[in-house]
Design a protein around this nucleic acid. Structure first.
Length: 473
DNA sequence: TCAACTCGCACCTTTGAACAGG
DNA sequence: ACCTGTTCAAAGGTGCGAGTTG
């Protein structure tokens, strides 16, 4: 397991003080997050994970499931997940590979999924793996169910946030610790593009059991398409026209997901992350960027480094790039992805800093080659990238009278419980308007006063706006 | 023309209520 | 009355493939 700091050799700042000297050092010290089903995630990531998004919302598979340790058993924590764009591009599936198809669409309203158990004591979170099974993805920008809104043919990765907070209202001035697992990056699609992914999904998702070759539905498929019945009865994946059998990891081909779950008992299959110092809410961070702090200044970089809220859990090189940038016409092999920026992990890192820290329209005008290859590749996230997920949220908020905020957090509470929204009312402007004038933030984001000063609003303000309309129960 | 998207379908798992038995 | 286990139906999660859209 590698820390974010390890992946950023250029960030010359002193090894960041673990903030151990601070008053909240006790809660920063040794939180550990482990991705369950890591091997399954890797098997998808090696091919290029795709997640179906639909208007009514679709679950992720594999779904996000983590284990936690190092929490204070009696202290309450809130767990959140949001989706962060990997870059500023839209992709298309062309000839068995992903290619850049233009600039990314304006980001939809950023939403955060709150684990239904939140808030709960550390002992609760640590006693068993925490599943985000009910998290759903949608491409419906007008979604009213609280699903996470994504654009199709774009690349994202989930971010996990742990906040020590007694209740939902105190979250915003609590300390965030953010974790990322590179192997969880995925491309959102409305229909599977890569038949290998389809096959993996069918093989491991119990709900898709009916599509397995050994399943009872071979008759159904045969009846639906008699012409192909012979092929389909022999091929587990009815869509597969490529070399599935050879290319798919044999371990996953016929095994059931249940079986895989059993295998997961082996801790070696997990992916662990160590905590990095976390100081303030990622949303606060993004706000900083949205206020003009998006930063290209070295000072800004140092500051980000010092107070970075994101915990990177780097992926092994084995499931590196599968996606090619088309720029320059010739798709570069996975190994060349990093080299375009110098060949180091750091390179991809920096490229993504550009990708996410800028206004999409802006970055799209840049030749992708300059920005570096992308996406969905298990790359170390840049510190800027921490803020990407809510960048447009912050922009929208700061530009719309009344403090519109696009970052919605949904909780298990009922729709009737209008606990409020993360800082603003109503629908976010979409696409987001231009960023507001620069606005500097103090470095101490841990005090409520600071949050107030930056439009985090107060409890009363939140409670005006229905937010927790989505129950994951 | 075609890629992306939507929708209805059949098949499947999950969930919880209802019931029986100890 | 309580607990446990079983059965069953409803709800909802899947990918497929045809049709639609831009």
């Amino acid at each position: 397991m590698q820390s974010l700091r390890d992946m950023k050799p250029n960030f010359s700042g002193p090894a960041q003080p673990p903030l151990s000297g601070g008053p909240d050092a006790y809660l920063q010290g040794n939180i550990r997050m482990t991705l369950e089903d890591s091997e399954l995630w890797k098997s998808f990531s090696e091919i290029g994970t795709e997640m179906i998004i639909t208007k009514p919302g679709r679950r992720m598979f594999p779904h996000c499931k983590i284990s936690l340790s190092g929490l204070i058993p009696c202290a309450k924590y809130i767990l959140l997940v949001d989706m962060v764009p990997e870059d500023g591009f839209r992709y298309k599936w062309n000839k068995e590979k992903w290619e850049v198809a233009g600039k990314a669409e304006p980001q939809p309203p950023c939403r955060t999924y709150l684990h239904p158990d939140s808030p709960a004591p550390g002992s609760h979170w640590m006693k068993q793996p925490v599943s985000f099974l009910k998290l759903k993805l949608t491409n419906n920008t007008l979604d009213q169910h609280g699903h996470i809104i994504l654009h199709s043919m774009h690349c994202y990765h989930p971010r996990f946030h742990i906040v020590q907070a007694d209740d939902l209202f105190s979250v915003r001035w609590s300390v965030f610790q953010t974790f990322i697992f590179p192997e969880t990056s995925f491309t959102s699609v409305t229909a599977y593009q890569n038949t290998k992914i389809t096959k993996l999904k069918i093989d491991h998702n119990p709900f898709a059991k009916g599509f397995r070759d050994e399943g009872t539905n071979s008759k159904r498929r045969a009846s639906r398409n008699p012409a192909c019945s012979e092929k389909k009865s022999k091929k587990p994946n009815t869509q597969s026209r490529d070399t599935d059998d050879e290319d798919s990891p044999p371990d996953f081909r016929q095994s059931s997901y249940d079986g895989f779950e059993e295998e997961q008992a082996d801790l070696s299959k997990r992916k662990e992350g160590e905590v990095k110092e976390e100081r303030y809410s990622p949303w606060a961070s993004e706000r900083e960027h949205a206020h003009g702090g998006r930063t290209e200044s070295p000072v800004g970089a140092d500051t980000r480094d010092l107070y970075n809220t994101e915990q990177l859990v780097p992926a092994p090189a084995s499931y590196q790039p599968y996606r090619f940038h088309e720029h320059g016409k010739s798709p570069s092999p996975p190994s060349s992805v990093g080299s375009s920026n110098g060949g180091s992990v750091r390179s991809g890192f920096e490229s993504r800093i550009h990708d996410v820290a800028r206004v999409p329209e802006h970055e799209a005008s840049k030749p992708p080659a300059e920005q570096g290859p992308s996406p969905c590749l298990p790359q170390p996230p840049p510190s800027h990238q921490d803020y990407a997920g809510v960048l447009n949220m912050a922009m929208a908020q700061t530009t719309k009278p009344g403090g519109v905020l696009g970052h919605h957090i949904y909780t298990p509470y009922s729709a009737e419980q209008s606990l409020g929204q993360w800082g603003g009312p109503g629908p976010v402007q979409y696409p987001p308007p231009p960023p507001p004038p620069p606005h500097h933030l103090p470095t101490d984001y841990t005090t409520p006063a600071v949050h107030h000063g930056y439009h985090h609003g107060n409890v009363a303000e939140w409670s005006q706006y229905p937010l927790f309309s989505y129950s994951c129960w």
